[in-house]
Computed example of a mutant assay.
Amino acid sequence: MVKSSVTPVYRMLRRVLLVFMSLLILVLGIQVCLHFLILPRMQISQILLESTLNLPDALLLSLGGLTGSENYISLDSDEIRKNFETSPLIRKAYVEKQFPGTLKIIIYRRVPLGIALLKSSGKAHMIAFDEYGVVFDAPGVSGYRDLPVLSGMVPDEKNGTKVLPESLYPLLQDLKILRKNSPLLYGQISEISVRPDQGVLNEIRLYISSYKLPVVVSSGLTETLMKKILLVLDSLNTGKLMTDLEYADFRTEQVVLKTREGN
């Protein structure tokens, strides 16, 4: 009788090798099934889109880099959200994948706080800005007619986005609060003319609807100050003094009336 030359150690190694090869074949089989059978069937089949932006759905989706052929597993919802938020028109975006093939998107537009005319290549076009100083295009005039017009400033560029100079940020916060607490008083402001000097906001001129006399203010444009401005302008409007005045200065507690030169 011939004894087997195969040692127990060899048998054990062979079993381990067979198990390893079986596992490897199983993993490869799973990957093949996943790639050719499962993944192609896990396309995004439904997009639930909610937006406060009045733009066509196809244009909105393109802002997020969506083409309509996205795969549920490979799609990165955080990357899509960042794509949306790089647009100056969009303040915030939420993107969520819902199994097995739904993508839910909620988009919040930037709410314009005012508008301005920006000259570029010899042409002027209207832009809007929000409470954070972010500048974005204002298509047409619908929905912007009641907003104050800002003049005397040139936008800066920050991380590829146009923004108002930082010296205007306190004024923007004042306007934001005034619009929230007293929208009627906010609506009385027709134009805001600023005169920055080396990054410092030296003068703010307000033009109030129905009054020709501009008023000069500093930061701190509150509801109380707006009521005071309207009261003074209304009292001046009834007399002949208005035609002799250049502006009314509200930067101190006592109102200073600046007369025109030669008067």
Rank of each mutant, 00 (worst) to 15 (best):
M1N: 14
V2E: 12
S4A: 13
S4K: 13
S5N: 14
T7Q: 05
P8G: 00
Y10F: 14
M12I: 13
R15Q: 11
V16T: 14
L18T: 12
L23T: 10
I25G: 08
G29A: 05
I30L: 12
I30F: 14
Q31W: 13
V32W: 11
H35R: 13
H35W: 14
L39A: 08
L39W: 10
P40Y: 01
P40E: 00
Q46H: 12
I47R: 01
E50H: 10
L55V: 07
D57E: 14
D57N: 11
L61S: 05
L61P: 02
G65W: 03
L66W: 04
G68F: 00
G68V: 00
S69M: 06
N71L: 01
S74Y: 14
S74L: 14
S74Q: 13
L75D: 02
R81K: 10
K82C: 05
K82S: 09
T86Y: 12
P88R: 01
P88H: 04
R91L: 08
V95C: 03
V95S: 05
G101A: 05
L103E: 03
K104A: 08
I107E: 01
Y108W: 15
Y108P: 12
R110A: 05
R110E: 07
R110Q: 07
V111A: 07
L113M: 02
L113Q: 02
A116Q: 06
L117W: 11
L118F: 11
S120R: 13
S121Y: 15
